[in-house]
Structures are given as structure tokens and as C-alpha cells.
Design a protein around this nucleic acid. Structure first.
Lengths: 358, 358
DNA sequence: ATTCGTAACGGAAACGTTTGCGTGTTGAGA
DNA sequence: TCTCAACACGCAAACGTTTCCGTTACGAAT
């Protein structure tokens, strides 16, 4: 077991000082040609690599970014991670992952763990419980400690930071308009409780689309489901809920669902009730994941472009990190300047038309 | 922007020495009651948290484990990560993720980046390209540097380390036997090229099951597909391949596929060719993911229990890390002892019976 | 011969901790 | 009054780097 070789060991072995070794390896021309060659050869032979931790301590930056998400077994989130990882790696950063599991306390704990020097900045999506409690102190404290945050998808106005979102509102409007334009008269909405920002926006989009087409929204056409039903374990309950919903609204000829699972379940129920898709009922979902492609019939969805969101988020964060490098000067003057230029990047959604619509 | 407070600052502010502050905060009884209270109160007020990087440098351990996987947008891998994260967090570790994207060089690069002090140990699944090249020097070097590795799912005999696998062979045998016992006479196998270990084992399981039932395997019933077809972009090509396969083997009444995608695609093709499932053709897949639950009909699968694999892997790694703590003594004597007790944990597969089988 | 510039290198601080050891003060026992 | 614990605390090293600031030696210029 040959431990990694350090500068000190090289120095001792070659009978020079540590600083000479360090300089020789960084090709400083302060060191004589001969010694430099000797040191570099020795270092290469013993496969010297500088210790990251020591560098982090010295430079006061870790070159790693922390990702904090509610759940990882989730197509959307994992595509975002992939996006982040790609640009992070390309720009010389590592990513470290924390899962909140939709829990407020886990989010706080994780955040504090990583904020103690482990990472340079955060990219995160807020947990449901946090959104419910509307307690954002941990984000604000982290930011005030000089650790930048970039939020994606589930964001919140109360926190000043860079954000990356999709236009949930516009995406929904377009989806519902598509249903309208293909003849739907009674479009149902299957959504979640309002507290998760994205659910709310998608609901608003649905309403706006109806309004713009001079159609009256009916409460009976809106099904609000508890989030826990989205868990795989409660599939049957979800199915029952939707079946009841369908049965008490026989005229439904279009469904807009705020996520993939609701949409495919709606299709399943519709078929069970002997509706034909898309002839009798058309269905559109939000979030383009694996299910949409393989459902029968394949599902028309609003695509969120998770990977692109991740890439954008990573760029935003790293840009800010490297910008901060220069202004280490502790100039209090331009704090306002800096505060004010937080960006919110909006990723365009797309409507991927498949077989569940005409 | 209030930077994180350090021991030094507290010491200065309270006019004591750094060591006194450190001891007071760790409740050392070497420090007088009064000073201790004062320091603790001050620290709490300014929300002092020890700097992780400094601790890592001092303790020569980072309390974070590196995960290296081929792909993250993949149900199986993300469940494994979830498993790892859960026990890692519970035992006080963080996880940092690297993606090889099935590329040998990215695997090496990522490994070297993290091995330079960033992590205490690895949990990984080998990339396809690495398996093809059969070049495992990076694993061996990492291990010889004192950084333990735990491999899961895609493992390899050439490297001495802890491993966590599912019994691909036995799982496949059971699946195929299930098909046989329900009357299938001509069972097709849809698999990948042999170089990925798991594909090979599953193929062997298929053959063994036939053999034990005194059925002759026919080459015409085995479809070996290129891995690239598993990508979502090439769905149609995949579909065509399978359709041709079905057309040239009209007697097929059972299908065993080595992954979920091949299985659902086979079902899609079968239905298109007007076969009824499970009456005319039964189908079983490997890997229980989202698709299996929501396919029509729902797919009977061999479940891999990814989360459990992750949990086991994390336990194995952390156990070894904390064991190594004690034997820092540089005793050369028992190196053999230690080398020899590498464990290979086998996770039992289960057959989840759904509607694609009788 | 003295000064000076410069090439080539070493010392030490700093990043933020922990910890072994040393040291000063106090009180009690002889 | 002297000695000696015990107590309460400070110093400094160490983890592995980088970098600022010396210091030495030597040849050249004055």
C-alpha cells in the first residue's frame, strides 16, 4: 500500500526545499533548469498529484458544487443532474449530491453539512415540505455567508438568487390550446395541490387557455390530487380517484395532466371505461419522461428539457463563482450592483406530439 | 456578507487561545466552567461550524464517498444511488458523483480527480468500454493507494475488492423456468452482446433453464442486439429488429429479455403482429423499473432491488473505511489477512409477476 | 576592492483544525 | 514557608499546499 506521495516527501528525497519542489512542478522559471527537470521526472515517476483537500483549504474554494434535490429516482431530476455534471466537469468542477426526500429538515441538514466548506455553491430544487412551510431561512443564510445558490424548477420569489425555470404557464397554455384547437369542448385538468409552485402555474395556464378561448372553467372538471398518490405504491388509489372523476364527468373529451404519471393513469382509466384515445378523449401530460414514450398510445407531452436546465444552472453558478474570484476585494460599495443582477433563465418548453392527441 | 466564523476569530474576540476555544467546544473538561460557557455561547451565537475541509486535511479522511456510474438517467442506477445516499448519510458520509457515460477515459479521469484526496473510497459500476478493453489498471492503482473500492452490478473478477451483485444467473434461470412451467415451448431470448458481464450471465441462465428442462436451445431463438439500440433515440430501429426476429420465428410463445426496454418493445411488436399477451406469447423482463409497472399489459420482471444493492455497497465500504481507521499502524504483517477477506454480497432477485405471464 | 544585480533556492506564514506538551497559578498538605 | 498536585490555559506542530519574502553566491560594473 503505497500512499500518495507529497511535496514534502519529494523534497526530502531530492534534498531540496518544499517550495522548490512546488515551484519546479508549476514550471516556475525561478528554479534552475537542472533541478526542475530532476524534480519533474521524480514527481512523474511517483505519479505525484497535488492533494485536493490541501488545495481547497489554501485557496478557500473546493471546485465542487452541491446539488440538493428532493428525489433522485425521478427522470426529470436525473436529467438535470446529468446536465449539471456535464458542464461542471467541463469547467473543472465536481458535483456532490444531497437528497432532501421532500423533507424540510433533511434539506436544512444537508445544506448545513455541505455549506461548511465542502462546496462553493448550490444548485437546488426546493422540497415540497419547504414550499408548504414557506420557511426559506436556510437559503438566505447560506447566501449571506457568501455561498451562491441557483434554483431550478421549483423556485420561490422570496429568495434572491439565480434561477432556471421552464415556462410552466406558457407551456400549459399551449398544451390546452392544442386540445381546444383539435375540438375538445370539455377539458379536464388533473393537478396537484397548489403549494408546489409549478402545479399552481400549470393550473393557471390551463385556466388562461380556456379563458382566451371563451370557455368557462368548471370546478367539476378539475381534479386536485394529493401528492402522496404520485408514489408508485399508491397506484391503485390514484387509479380509483381518476376513475371516479371520469364517471362523474361523462362529457370529458380532453385531459391535461400536470405530470406524466397522472396522464398515463388517466389514459389507462379511459381505456378501461372503453373510451378510445385520441378519438373520444385526447390526453396531454407535462414532463417528457420514459412513460410518455412507451405508453399505449404514446403520450403527447410538454417537454421540460431537464438536461438543458441543468446545463444552464451550472453555467450560472460557475459564472458567478468565478466572477466572485475577482471581487474578493471586500468592497462594500458595489454590493448592490451585484445583488441586482440575479438572472432568471427561462427554458422554452416544447410540445411533443404523439398518439394521444389528434 | 458575513463569512463563516473560525476558531481563530472566536479566540481573538474572547481573548483566549485557539486551542482553548477548540477544547471548550468539544467539551473538554480541561477548560474552566466559566470560559467554556462563554465560548460555547459565543460560538452558538455566531453559528460556528467547524470547517470540513480543514478537518479533512487534519484527519486525512473526507467522510465522503465517491460514486462512479456509467449513466444517471437510468432507473436502476438512480435507485442504487438512493440506497447509497441513505446509509451514507445515516453514517455521516456525503456522496460525490462521477459519470463515466460508458467511456473508459472518462472513468479514468473521474477516478483520478476524486482519488486525489476528495474521497475516502469508491462505489462504482464499470463502464461498458472498460469491460470491452478489459483494462482495470485504474482500479488496481486506486486500491493500492489505500483507497478501497466496492463494485456493484457490473463487476469483474480481476479486481480484488468488495462486490455487490444480484444473482443474474439464478434470476434468469427462474424467469425462464417460469415460462416453461406455464407451457412455453419456444422461448426466445433477447439479449445484448456478451461483453457486459451481466448480459452474459443472464444468457447463461436462459440456456441452463432450457437444459434442465431438456429443451434444446436454438440459435434462431436468440436475438443479440447492439447496445446502442437501447438508447431512446433508436427506438424505431430496435422495434424493427425485433419485428424481423418475430417474423422469422413464428412459433415463439415466450420471450425472456435481459432488460426492461427490450421486453416492453417485444410486447409492443407482439401486439402489433396480433399476438395476445399472455395467451399467445408470454414475456418476462429483467430489471424492475417504471416501464414494467405501466406497460400494457404490465410486465412480469426479475427485480434487482437496486436500493438494497446501494445500501449494502455503502455498508461494505464504510465498514472497511472505519476498520482501516484502527489499523493505521502500518503493520505490514497482516496485509494478507486483510486482502483475503473481500466479500461478495449477493442480493436475491425476485420474480414480480404481473400480467404479461400466465 | 566595493557595490550591486540577479539567478537559485530556503524559510515561514497562511488556510482551519486538533492535540501533545509545556507553563503559570492556586490551594492544600507537611 | 516550602512543595507539589491539580487546574486552566497557551504554544506549536501537523495535515499538504502556495507564495511572499528573504538569503546566499557569484559575476559584472563601478
Amino acid at each position: 500500500m503505497k500512499r500518495k506521495v507529497t511535496l514534502k516527501q519529494i523534497a526530502k528525497e531530492l534534498d531540496v526545499s518544499i517550495s522548490t519542489v512546488s515551484r519546479a512542478l508549476s514550471n516556475s522559471k525561478e528554479i534552475g533548469e537542472e533541478t526542475r527537470q530532476k524534480i519533474q521526472a521524480f514527481a512523474k515517476f511517483y505519479n505525484y498529484k497535488p492533494n485536493n483537500i490541501a488545495l481547497s483549504l489554501k485557496n478557500r474554494k473546493t471546485k465542487t458544487i452541491g446539488i440538493l434535490i428532493p428525489e433522485i429516482v425521478h427522470h426529470f431530476f436525473s436529467t438535470v443532474i446529468r446536465g449539471i455534471e456535464i458542464v461542471a466537469n467541463k469547467r473543472g468542477y465536481n458535483v456532490i449530491i444531497g437528497l432532501s426526500n421532500e423533507s424540510f429538515s433533511k434539506e436544512v441538514i444537508n445544506m448545513e453539512m455541505l455549506a461548511n466548506g465542502s462546496i462553493d455553491g448550490f444548485i437546488l430544487s426546493i422540497s415540497k415540505e419547504t414550499l408548504l412551510k414557506q420557511d426559506y431561512h436556510h437559503f438566505k443564510e447560506t447566501i449571506s455567508q457568501g455561498i451562491p445558490i441557483v434554483m431550478f424548477d421549483r423556485v420561490v420569489n422570496e429568495v434572491d438568487c439565480d434561477k432556471v425555470i421552464v415556462d410552466d404557464f406558457k407551456g400549459s397554455v399551449n398544451a390546452v390550446k392544442k386540445l381546444i384547437s383539435t375540438g375538445c369542448k370539455n377539458i379536464a385538468l388533473i393537478t396537484t395541490m397548489d403549494y408546489v409552485s409549478v402545479g399552481k402555474l400549470r393550473t393557471q395556464g390551463y385556466l388562461r387557455a380556456l379563458q382566451e378561448s371563451h370557455m368557462n372553467p368548471k370546478a367539476s372538471l378539475i381534479l386536485k390530487l394529493d401528492d402522496s398518490l404520485a408514489l408508485e405504491e399508491h397506484l391503485d388509489i390514484l387509479e380509483n380517484e381518476i376513475e371516479q372523476f371520469f364517471n362523474s364527468n361523462t362529457k370529458i373529451d380532453g385531459v391535461f395532466a400536470v405530470n406524466e404519471l397522472y396522464a398515463v393513469t388517466a389514459m389507462k382509466v379511459a381505456r378501461k371505461l372503453n373510451f378510445n384515445i385520441p378519438e373520444d378523449i385526447q390526453v396531454i401530460g407535462f414532463t417528457d419522461g420514459v412513460l410518455s414514450k412507451h405508453a399505449r398510445p404514446s403520450l403527447t407531452t410538454v417537454s421540460q428539457h431537464g438536461q438543458k436546465m441543468g446545463e444552464q444552472a451550472a453555467h450560472l453558478l460557475i459564472d458567478r463563482l468565478e466572477l466572485d474570484d475577482d471581487d474578493e476585494s471586500d468592497t462594500y460599495i458595489d454590493e448592490n450592483e451585484i445583488d441586482s443582477d440575479f438572472k432568471t433563465v427561462v427554458i422554452e418548453t416544447g410540445l411533443i406530439e404523439r398518439d394521444s392527441t389528434k
